[in-house]
Simulated assay, not measured.
Amino acid sequence: MKQALARAIGGVAMIGLLAVSAACADDSSGSGDTATGSTCDLKIAFFGALTGGNAQLGINIRDGAKLAVDQYNTKNADCKVGLVEKDSAGDPAQASGLATSLVADTKLLGVVGPAFSGESKVANPILSKEGVVIITPSATNPALATQGDKTFHRGLGNDASQGPGAANYIKTVLKAQKVFVVDDASEYGKGLADQVKQVLGATVVDSAVVKEQQVDFGAVIDQVKGSAADAIFWGGYYREASPFLKQYRDAGGKAKFIAGDGVKDQAFVDGAGAANAEGAILTCPCVPPEKAGGTFAADYKAATGREAGTYSAEAFDAANIMLEGIKAGNTTRDKLETFVDSYQGQGVTTKFKFQENGEIDPASVAVWAYKVEGGKVVAEQETPK
């Protein structure tokens, strides 16, 4: 990842680097905390699902952040940074307790995550109140930037970008005439579906709400078939999308299937069945992992034995921004927050510059359409602007 430490701080950054080295030498025991000037054994955290029905998205993010930390520690073996893992299972009800445990650790400076919008809504105020830096590589609900959480940053476009991108693809590429919209009532799913509805307008012929962890979709399928829709947009996650699409295809449903980033994972294809998922379109404000800069794709595969997945590269960038700040001597929560607020640099996914509300510069946002072909999710094109 090509990032310039001296982008705006010049000699000050060099002084900071010397200070870090000196502090590491003075604190070989790692027993102090950030309030007293100790700068070794600091930590950042991953916050997201590692278990549960949507775990693969969280695992992708965790592994991207872990790659960044492992590479950093290889280069800085005398003053390492730890990675704390907090498994939310994608459940907002667990977010408060996890966030509270993180802020209690004075060595903990920042969080890569939370991964999902629902858990972010709960956790972000707790993290922000105590000055913990937040860079989410995946939570896309626009409302997260309006909660007043001063340490919040989003490392990609939000659903106000993705929703119109998906809707424009449905109109101009698929040329759908009748669209049925489904959402799961989650902060993410409903928010994305509402954005799509707003752009499609009268093209939306009907809509339905499903429940998280629902397994029987017969009533919704009857509603979809009765609407004569030629396209379905799904606002939600792959845990429910997979059985829905399988049941819909088994019932003879032929409408094209479009969904957002919460469905963009191989687990969706495997759950629905490759034949049922064939041709499905999945949008995401994320860069195709194979198009990430530098040696990221090869490094990720070497470290994990797998191809990089959805949000792996975005998490790698989020972690590296924090690590760069720590390396430059920003070894308290306040200092790291100031560093991230003013950060400008090129990551493997995009060029980073955060606005006052924590959103990434709109010029850095791209929404991609991915397509299921031959049982695999492959990048197709950027969605029409």
Score class of each variant (00 low, 15 high):
7 R>N: 15
11 G>A: 03
13 A>H: 00
17 L>F: 04
21 S>W: 06
21 S>I: 10
26 D>L: 08
26 D>K: 08
29 S>E: 04
31 S>H: 07
32 G>L: 10
34 T>I: 14
35 A>F: 13
36 T>A: 09
38 S>V: 11
39 T>P: 01
39 T>C: 06
41 D>L: 10
48 G>P: 05
51 T>R: 05
52 G>I: 03
53 G>P: 05
64 G>R: 02
70 D>K: 11
72 Y>G: 03
72 Y>P: 03
73 N>H: 09
74 T>R: 14
75 K>I: 03
80 K>M: 09
83 L>V: 07
87 D>F: 05
87 D>E: 12
91 D>A: 14
91 D>C: 03
97 G>C: 09
97 G>Y: 09
97 G>K: 07
98 L>I: 12
99 A>P: 01
111 V>P: 00
111 V>G: 01
112 V>I: 15
113 G>L: 12
115 A>Y: 15
116 F>V: 08
116 F>S: 09
121 K>R: 07
125 P>E: 15
130 E>Y: 13
132 V>D: 00
138 S>W: 05
138 S>H: 02
140 T>I: 14
140 T>M: 12
141 N>M: 04
142 P>I: 01
147 Q>F: 13
156 L>F: 04
157 G>R: 08
158 N>Y: 13
159 D>Y: 04
160 A>L: 10
164 P>A: 02
167 A>I: 02
171 K>I: 11
172 T>C: 11
173 V>N: 12
180 F>R: 00
185 A>K: 15
188 Y>S: 01
191 G>C: 10
195 Q>G: 04
199 V>K: 04
210 V>L: 05
211 K>A: 07
213 Q>I: 06
221 I>S: 01
222 D>Q: 15
223 Q>P: 00
223 Q>G: 02
227 S>Y: 15
234 W>I: 01
238 Y>C: 03
238 Y>R: 05
238 Y>H: 14
240 E>F: 08
243 P>F: 03
244 F>W: 03
245 L>M: 13
249 R>W: 06
249 R>A: 05
251 A>K: 13
253 G>V: 02
256 K>C: 04
258 I>A: 07
266 Q>V: 11
268 F>N: 00
271 G>W: 11
274 A>R: 13
276 N>A: 14
277 A>V: 01
278 E>T: 06
279 G>C: 07
292 A>C: 13
292 A>V: 15
293 G>Y: 00
295 T>V: 08
297 A>R: 00
301 K>V: 07
302 A>H: 05
303 A>H: 08
304 T>Q: 09
306 R>E: 12
313 A>F: 12
322 M>E: 07
324 E>Q: 10
327 K>W: 14
327 K>F: 10
329 G>S: 10
334 D>F: 04
335 K>W: 06
335 K>H: 10
338 T>Q: 15
345 G>R: 01
346 Q>I: 11
347 G>A: 14
347 G>Q: 06
348 V>H: 02
357 N>S: 05
358 G>A: 07
371 K>I: 07
371 K>V: 10
379 A>L: 10
384 P>S: 04
